[in-house]
Amino acid sequence: MTTSIPSSPDSAVELLARELNENGGVFCPSPKAGMELWNTHPRVFLDVAHTGSVRCPYCGTQYRLKAGEQVRSGH
């Protein structure tokens, strides 16, 4: 995978368009966010396709499309 683990509040998990689910989003917590089991929260869907970037309301992890990535209309 080509994602990065956030190391500060300003960091983001970068996603490729193909890593989004069929609805154009991701779920948090995510293994890509580097969370330990003890440090998780309820699973929430985050829509990345429409805005290109979204922040989890529970933990603040930022998810964004990698620069140059485009989501096809099938998402």
Rank of each mutant, 00 (worst) to 15 (best):
V26W: 02
P29Q: 05
M35N: 13
S73H: 08
R18N: 12
Y63W: 03
N23L: 12
R55A: 12
M35W: 15
L16R: 14
R43Y: 01
G34W: 04
V44S: 03
G52W: 03
S7D: 10
L15I: 06
G52N: 07
C28N: 07
S11L: 01
R64A: 05
G60Y: 11
E36Q: 09
V26P: 06
M1K: 11
S53T: 09
M1N: 11
W38P: 08
H75P: 03
V26Q: 01
Q70G: 08
P9I: 00
R72H: 13
L46W: 04
V71T: 02
G52P: 12
S4Y: 01
L15F: 04
A49P: 08
C28M: 05
P31K: 05
P6D: 09
P31M: 05
T3Y: 09
G24N: 09
V44L: 05
T2L: 13
N39C: 08
E69R: 05
P9V: 04
T40E: 14
R64L: 07
G34S: 03
R55E: 11
S53R: 15
E69K: 06
E19S: 09
P9R: 08
T2S: 15
S30K: 02
K32G: 11
N23A: 15
S7G: 15
S7Y: 11
C56M: 06
S8L: 06
F27M: 03
N23T: 10
A33V: 09
F45W: 10
V54P: 04
P42G: 07
S8C: 09
P42H: 02
L65C: 01
A12K: 04
G25T: 07
G74I: 06
V44K: 00
L46D: 01
G52L: 06
A12P: 11
T51Y: 03
S53D: 07
F27E: 07
G74Q: 09
E19G: 04
K66A: 14
H75T: 05
R55C: 10
N23S: 14
D10N: 06
S53I: 12
T61S: 00
D10S: 09
I5D: 00
C28E: 07
R72D: 15
K66V: 04
T40P: 11
L20D: 10
G74P: 00
T2E: 15
Y63F: 13
G60R: 10
E22A: 15
P29S: 08
A67I: 08
N39A: 10
P57V: 13
V44C: 03
T51I: 01
F45E: 02
G24E: 07
I5H: 00
L65H: 00
H75R: 11
P29L: 05
H75W: 13
P57W: 12
F27C: 03
T51W: 01
E22Q: 14
T61M: 02
K32Q: 13
Q62D: 14
T2Y: 10
R72T: 12
A33D: 15
W38Q: 05
V54G: 04
H75I: 04
V13K: 07
P6T: 09
L65N: 00
R64G: 00
G34Q: 09
P31G: 03
G68M: 02
S7V: 14
F27S: 01
R18H: 14
N39E: 12
G24D: 10
A33C: 14
R64E: 05
L37S: 02
L15M: 07
